[in-house]
Amino acid sequence: MSASAPAQALALLAHGSPDPDWLRPVEQIAARLRVLAPALTVAIATLEHGPALGDVIARLGESGVRRVVVVPVFLSGGGRHLKRDVPELVARIQRDHASLEIALSGDALATDPDVLDALAAAALRRVALSSPA
């Protein structure tokens, strides 16, 4: 492992879109994480139309990272992506990179109670902003 590479990294996994503006909120989350946890390597991957998770994890491994935690940046875990596609993808990448530990953090990020509270508060702010004076 290189002297400057941390042993652990976080990979934010989003769906992706052909519109590059779609990824901006995920990039903003990554930027905030880099401020909150400067010693942690943070990377972004997408299922479609962006950096592939396998490529991102391979680069992290080449930099000396030994453990990657994959955090799904999704609103719901109820779809096939998080029920089937993402676990299968992570398992396949783990087989391809046996020297790394790859952990799927669990369900969609937006199922976290704190994230749900933040989303509800943001919705309420929009109601207040649209209310007549």
Rank of each mutant, 00 (worst) to 15 (best):
residue 41 T to K: 13
residue 46 T to L: 15
residue 121 A to T: 03
residue 103 A to Q: 10
residue 22 W to T: 14
residue 116 L to G: 13
residue 124 L to I: 04
residue 99 S to H: 10
residue 39 A to R: 13
residue 61 G to V: 11
residue 28 Q to C: 08
residue 84 R to S: 03
residue 110 A to K: 02
residue 92 R to N: 05
residue 88 E to N: 06
residue 81 H to W: 03
residue 110 A to G: 13
residue 7 A to L: 11
residue 103 A to S: 12
residue 93 I to W: 00
residue 103 A to T: 14
residue 49 H to Y: 15
residue 1 M to N: 06
residue 67 R to F: 00
residue 48 E to W: 12
residue 58 A to R: 14
residue 132 P to D: 11
residue 86 V to L: 02
residue 104 L to V: 11
residue 83 K to S: 04
residue 2 S to P: 07
residue 11 A to T: 14
residue 21 D to C: 07
residue 17 S to K: 08
residue 114 D to I: 14
residue 82 L to Q: 01
residue 109 L to V: 12
residue 53 L to I: 15
residue 77 G to P: 03
residue 8 Q to E: 14
residue 93 I to E: 00
residue 15 H to R: 09
residue 49 H to M: 13
residue 50 G to D: 07
residue 126 R to H: 08
residue 47 L to S: 10
residue 8 Q to R: 07
residue 34 R to K: 14
residue 50 G to C: 15
residue 96 D to S: 09
residue 69 V to G: 00
residue 5 A to T: 09
residue 10 L to M: 05
residue 97 H to A: 10
residue 43 A to V: 15
residue 14 A to K: 00
residue 67 R to Q: 12
residue 23 L to T: 11
residue 103 A to I: 13
residue 59 R to M: 15
residue 26 V to L: 06
residue 96 D to R: 07
residue 62 E to H: 13
residue 2 S to Q: 06
residue 100 L to D: 01
residue 112 D to C: 06
residue 104 L to F: 10
residue 128 A to D: 10
residue 109 L to G: 05
residue 120 A to C: 12
residue 13 L to Q: 01
residue 14 A to F: 01
residue 124 L to R: 10
residue 95 R to K: 12
residue 77 G to H: 01
residue 28 Q to E: 15
residue 27 E to L: 13
residue 50 G to M: 11
residue 112 D to I: 15
residue 112 D to M: 07
residue 7 A to M: 12
residue 13 L to D: 01
residue 66 R to Q: 15
residue 77 G to F: 02
residue 61 G to A: 08
residue 19 D to G: 07
residue 58 A to P: 09
residue 72 P to Q: 09
residue 133 A to H: 13
residue 97 H to R: 06
residue 12 L to F: 08
residue 75 L to F: 08
residue 40 L to W: 04
residue 65 V to N: 01
residue 52 A to F: 11
residue 20 P to K: 06
residue 56 V to S: 03
residue 21 D to P: 04
residue 85 D to K: 02
